[in-house]
Amino acid sequence: MQKDLIVSIKDLAFGYAERQIHKKINMNFHRGKVVAIMGGSGCGKTTILRLIGGQIKPTSGHVEVDGQIVHEQGRKGIYELRRKMGMLFQHGALFSDLSVFENVAFPIREHTNLSEEIIKDLVLMKLNAVGLRGANQLMPTELSGGMARRVALARAVALDPDIIMYDEPFAGLDPISMGVICDLIRTLNDALGATSIIVTHDVTETFAFADYIYFIADGIVAAEGSPSDLKKSQLPFVKQFVHSQKDGPVPFHYQANDYLQDLRL
């Protein structure tokens, strides 16, 4: 059990000076699984990915990746850990001055000394996996949103990472692209034997293919479990989220004075 644990988060707290985002978060991610982190906007889902990647430091608690505590690593150690990770950013974050081919080749060129021939084969293989081998000479500006994200996915898995992180992979996509991405997340994860961590708030898609789901609310893990467990959950927050109800534990109204008082009635 412990052996196939690749990322674990223990008693993690994080916040900026004026705002506490995470109070106490505990999560475990196992090899070969697709795990989703869900929660409302602004609850600090993306921040968790940044903490795993070591881009920010927790105020207390720690994140362990492959047995090493992330925030205690120096620059070299963090870079070493990041080579095991691939990350798909919300809008792809493709390098706008490089072609699709060069974007995917970028991590390979930076971290290996492979010959141009092998790089070309590798890049075309990765692009083929996301179905965009034919688009390898296009520039990022010539791609649609869905295509850009597929290229970014190819780039994220270019070095066959152990951990693939997805930041809102479905945001702003049409249903067809969404289906394609869902499918790719699952197949790439299984093909690479990697662990996928997905930050999202799209209920239907996530419940369809995730192995395990964490719900975050108010800085703690509000609920966790497999999709089928969570569907049956009677927790009010989970119910509100899964069935997208307007009002519930997360109120429709932002904190305000009494309505009548504000209107001076």
Partner: peptide, 8 residues
């Protein structure tokens, strides 16, 4: 950010 996450 993406570059940083690629250890570059």
């Amino acid at each position: 950010s993406a570059m940083e996450m690629m250890a570059v």
